Computed example of a mutant assay.
Amino acid sequence: MDKVMRMSSEKGVVIFTKNSCCLCYAVQVLFRDLRVQPKIHEIDNDPDCREIEKALVRLGCANAVPAVFVSGKLVGSTNDVMSLHLSGSLVPLIKPYQSFHK
């Protein structure tokens, strides 16, 4: 759990993913389209993968990945992120981390 909390605070927006997960890819594309360069942790490349998955579920993710953190706080998984985006609440949340450079 400590490792997940430390990793989730490494940058303003952090996404825990697996490289074989299509929903993880979709969430990454959404953030890229919103001009945010999140820190991506592909947990299937981490020797502690199972422990990280368990910690993410304990923190409140319905599925372990994708798990999105903003400012070190869990936003949630795909449904949570998409709901925030559709309601107009995601952009104000990530505004400090948007890049306007090409």
Rank of each mutant, 00 (worst) to 15 (best):
M1A: 14
M1E: 13
M1F: 07
D2M: 10
K3W: 03
M5Y: 13
M5G: 05
M7C: 03
S8M: 08
S9I: 06
K11R: 14
K11F: 11
G12K: 07
V13P: 06
V14D: 01
I15K: 05
I15N: 10
I15E: 06
I15C: 06
F16W: 05
F16A: 11
T17I: 14
T17V: 14
T17K: 03
K18Q: 13
N19M: 06
N19E: 11
S20H: 13
C21E: 10
C22F: 05
C22A: 13
C22L: 12
L23F: 15
L23A: 08
C24D: 11
A26G: 02
A26N: 13
V27C: 10
Q28P: 00
L30P: 13
L30K: 10
L30G: 12
F31V: 03
D33A: 11
L34A: 10
L34T: 05
L34F: 04
R35K: 14
V36P: 00
Q37D: 12
P38A: 05
P38N: 10
I40D: 04
E42S: 11
D44P: 02
N45Q: 13
N45C: 07
D46H: 12
P47R: 09
P47N: 07
P47Q: 06
D48Y: 06
C49K: 13
C49D: 07
R50F: 06
E53N: 02
K54Q: 15
A55P: 01
L56G: 03
V57E: 08
V57Q: 12
V57M: 04
V57D: 03
R58H: 13
R58T: 12
R58W: 09
L59E: 15
L59P: 04
L59D: 04
L59Y: 11
G60F: 07
G60R: 07
G60Q: 04
C61P: 03
A62D: 12
A62R: 15
A62L: 15
A62M: 15
N63M: 13
N63L: 14
N63S: 15
V65W: 00
V65G: 07
P66H: 10
P66L: 03
P66N: 06
V68W: 04
F69I: 00
V70A: 03
V70E: 04
V70G: 09
G72C: 03
L74E: 04
L74W: 03
L74F: 03
V75Q: 01
G76M: 05
S77W: 01
S77E: 14
T78V: 10
T78W: 15
N79P: 00
D80T: 06
V81S: 00
V81W: 08
M82T: 05
S83R: 14
L86F: 09
S87G: 04
G88Q: 07
G88W: 02
G88H: 09
V91I: 15
V91L: 08
P92R: 01
L93Q: 09
K95L: 12
P96N: 05
P96D: 09
P96L: 07
S99G: 03
F100C: 06
K102A: 10
K102F: 08
